[in-house]
Design a binder for these strands. Structure first.
Lengths: 236, 236
DNA sequence: CAGTGGTCTAGACCACTGT
DNA sequence: CAGTGGTCTAGACCACTGC
C-alpha cells in the first residue's frame, strides 16, 4: 500500500534521478526505448501517476521523448542550440590576447526570499550574493550579479576571487549538470550603469543563467554587458 | 463523477489557458494571489490533482509562483520565449497557443555589393533581399531582414510567404549545414522602430545569423526584436 | 487485438504558513 | 489552529500504434 518515502526526496524525483543515471551510465542510449510506465510502477512500487509525472517532466527537460501508443525513448543527442559557453570570461579575454582584471564589489549572505526559493533552500538556508566587474584592458565589460546556493558551495563566502573567477571556483567544486539561460536586451539600471561606466540610454545585453547540480539550482547569475562592448556569438 | 471533457483540449490545459487569460486581461496582476487549488477544483469541476498539474506547469513556465502554506501568486516578471534554435518563429508562436501572422514589407533582387560578397556570389550573381514582420497576436515581435543566395534558392524571389515563412521555405529546399550567429543589443534604427512600433529609446535584442549550405553562405538574416517583447532562452 | 501513453478522479497524508 | 500546497494512490477510460 502506502510506502511513502519519507526520505524527503519525492518518489518522482528519485525515479527521474534513476533514469538520468541509467542514461549517464549508458545503459540506456539515445533512441533506446525505456520500460513502460506500468513496469516502472511495479519495479519501484509506485502508482502509474507518479511514474507518469516523472516521465512527463523528463520530456519537458528534453531527456526523453514519448510516442503515444508506442513507448518512451531516450532523446537523441544533446545539442546544439547554443554554446553560450560555460567558459570563463577570464579565459575568453585572455584568449584574445587582452589583459583581464576584476573587482569585487560585494560578497555577502543574503536573505532575499525569492532568490532563496529559486535556489531551493529553506527560508534561512544559506544563500550568498556577489557582484564582480570584469575588465578587458581595464575597460569594464561585464557586471556579474550572482546568487549562490550555500549548501552546494559552502565555502563561497570566504573566497577572494582574486586569482579565480566565481565561475572557475564553482566548476572546480561541482561541475554544472544542467544550464538554463535567457538572453535579453535591457536599459541599464543605475547600479549597472555606474559599475560599467556606461552612457545613459545605452542598452545592455543581459545573459541570465541558472545552473543545476544534482537537480537543484546551484547558482543564478545575471551578466550585464554594455551593448557597445560585447556580443555573444557561436556556431553549430 | 466523470465529466470528461471530450472537447479534445485537456482540462488542465483549459485551466492553464484560463489563468493566462485572467493575467492577460489584468484581472490578476503580478504579485496577486490566485484562488487556492481546492476552490479552482470546485469552480471548474475538476479534481485537485488536475488543478495541481495546471498550476505546476505554469510555475515551470514562470507564469506563477507558489509558496507552500501560503498560496499561489502571479509571477512579477515578464515574458517567456525561445531559443536560438533553427526553429521557425511561426511554430514557436503557435506552440505558445498564440496567433501567428506576418507582413511582407519588401522582396526584391539586390545589388548590395558587400552582401553579394558575403554570399560568395559573382558581382552580378543573384542575391535577394526580403523584410518581413512577424506578429504574435497582432503584436509585432520580430523584424526579419534577410539576404538570400539566389544560386542556392533560385525560387526565393517568387514566394509570397503567406503560408510559409522564409525559414520554412528554405529548410524545405536545402537544410542548413552550418550556422553562425551573433547576439547583440542595439538601439533600434528608424526602419526597425517603425516596423515594430517601438518606443523611442527602447533597446532591441538582435540576432544575426548566417547559414551555410555546401560551404557557401546560403542566407544572412538579421532578426530584430523589441527588448520588452522578446527574449531568447534555452537549456543544455 | 494487446500494448502504450494521456488524462482524470476522489480520496489521503504530510509539511509548511500565518494567525 | 485552519488554510494552503506537495505528494501519492489505485483505480478508470480513452486514443493511438503496430501487429
Amino acid at each position: 500500500m502506502n510506502t511513502k518515502s519519507h526520505t524527503s526526496t519525492p518518489a518522482y524525483q528519485q525515479l527521474k534521478d534513476h533514469v538520468l543515471q541509467m542514461i549517464e551510465a549508458e545503459h540506456w542510449r539515445g533512441g533506446d526505448m525505456i520500460p513502460p510506465e506500468e513496469q516502472l510502477a511495479k519495479e519501484f512500487g509506485l502508482s502509474r501517476m507518479t511514474v507518469n509525472r516523472a516521465m512527463r517532466e523528463l520530456v519537458t527537460e528534453r531527456v526523453l521523448m514519448r510516442i503515444r501508443g508506442s513507448g518512451t525513448f531516450v532523446a537523441d543527442t544533446r545539442y546544439q542550440s547554443t554554446l553560450i559557453e560555460v567558459r570563463s570570461i577570464a579565459d575568453e579575454i585572455k584568449s584574445r590576447g587582452d589583459t583581464y582584471s576584476s573587482k569585487l564589489l560585494l560578497l555577502q549572505r543574503t536573505d532575499d526570499i525569492a532568490m532563496i526559493q529559486t535556489l531551493g533552500l529553506p527560508p534561512d538556508g544559506p544563500a550568498y550574493h556577489s557582484r564582480i566587474v570584469h575588465f578587458e584592458n581595464d575597460v569594464p565589460i561585464q557586471l556579474e550579479d550572482r546568487h549562490v546556493n550555500g549548501l552546494v558551495f559552502p565555502g563561497y563566502i570566504n573566497q577572494s576571487f582574486e586569482n579565480e573567477t566565481p565561475n572557475e571556483y564553482m566548476t572546480g567544486i561541482a561541475p554544472a549538470q544542467g544550464v538554463e539561460y535567457w538572453v535579453t536586451a535591457r536599459q541599464a539600471p543605475a547600479f549597472v550603469r555606474q559599475a560599467l561606466k556606461m552612457a545613459i540610454g545605452e542598452p545592455c545585453l543581459v545573459l541570465h543563467r541558472r545552473t543545476r547540480v544534482r537537480g537543484t539550482v546551484a547558482t543564478d547569475v545575471v551578466l550585464w554587458h554594455p551593448a557597445s562592448r560585447y556580443q555573444l556569438s557561436g556556431k553549430f
